[in-house]
């Protein structure tokens, strides 16, 4: 919960490290998987879905969606990008009905009618967001000042950036943003077995006891904060 625990300067170092070390030279990936995703170090993690340049965007975007500043841990401290990378690699979206025809302008209340899988959504969304960043600021998203990063993310959310004009009519900027934000929040709050919520720090911050799943004696204890910290499905405590 302490805001000083993960200072901006350390965060910058961590991101710089991730950027500077050639991905192929990292020997720990296989071992990290053998131990499960709960023990991964973000700085040493080799993405399995994202390319190295895409990974820089994801790290930087997650760091603004759930930043380190303020109370509660940030997305990088909790390995949220690892969660997203793993989910995209492991079939996120394979339950969706994708057959055509796809209508031109469906009523939003009739739900998702897009043609892109989450994987295609990320690939296109990152590319076009970077294109926009280079056009507007002359540098890639991850090198922008925090205020400019937030402005760009807000523009994506509000569809103020036209992906159609950048050459991708099948994707709205807001669809990409919402997919990324939803996945980031899922990674922040899911059980650590999926790679995010490292050391259950998000659960500790909000007071959720995780997989304890037995509260017979607490149901009648009204309006008293539950005293125990979380456990994970794997049996770890925090």
């Amino acid at each position: 919960m302490s805001s000083g625990k993960f200072s901006p300067s350390r965060r910058t170092i961590l991101m710089a490290t991730a950027a500077a070390v050639p991905i192929a030279s990292i020997p720990l990936v296989r071992q990290a998987h053998a131990d499960g995703l709960e023990n991964v170090q973000l700085s040493q993690y080799q993405p399995v879905f994202f390319s190295a340049p895409e990974w820089q965007f994801i790290l930087a975007a997650c760091d603004r969606l759930i930043p380190a500043e303020g109370r509660g841990p940030g997305a990088l401290e909790t390995n949220v990008p690892v969660f997203i990378d793993q989910q995209l690699h492991n079939g996120l979206g394979d339950d969706v009905y994708m057959d055509g025809p796809h209508p031109e302008n469906p009523a939003p209340t009739l739900g998702f009618q897009g043609t892109l899988t989450p994987q295609q959504n990320y690939r296109a969304g990152i590319k076009l967001s970077q294109q926009h960043a280079r056009q507007k600021y002359g540098k890639p998203f991850e090198q922008l000042a925090d205020a400019d990063k937030d402005a760009l993310l807000t523009a994506l959310q509000k569809n103020e950036i036209s992906f159609a004009e950048l050459g991708e009519p099948a994707l709205k900027a807001s669809s990409f943003f919402n997919q990324l934000l939803g996945d980031a929040k899922n990674g922040y709050l899911a059980d650590p077995m999926y790679g995010g919520n490292k050391d259950m720090k998000a659960w500790v911050a909000i007071g959720f006891p995780g997989a304890r799943a037995a509260y017979t004696e607490w149901v009648d204890t009204h309006n008293v904060k539950y005293p125990l910290g979380p456990v994970s499905v794997s049996g770890k405590r925090a």
Binding site: R64, L65, I66, G72, L181, A184, A205, F208
Partner: peptide, 14 residues
């Protein structure tokens, strides 16, 4: 999203 969302979760969960 952002700091406001994160602190909102800390303040209002439960």
């Amino acid at each position: 999203w952002g700091k406001g969302w994160k602190e909102g979760m800390v303040d209002w969960y439960g």
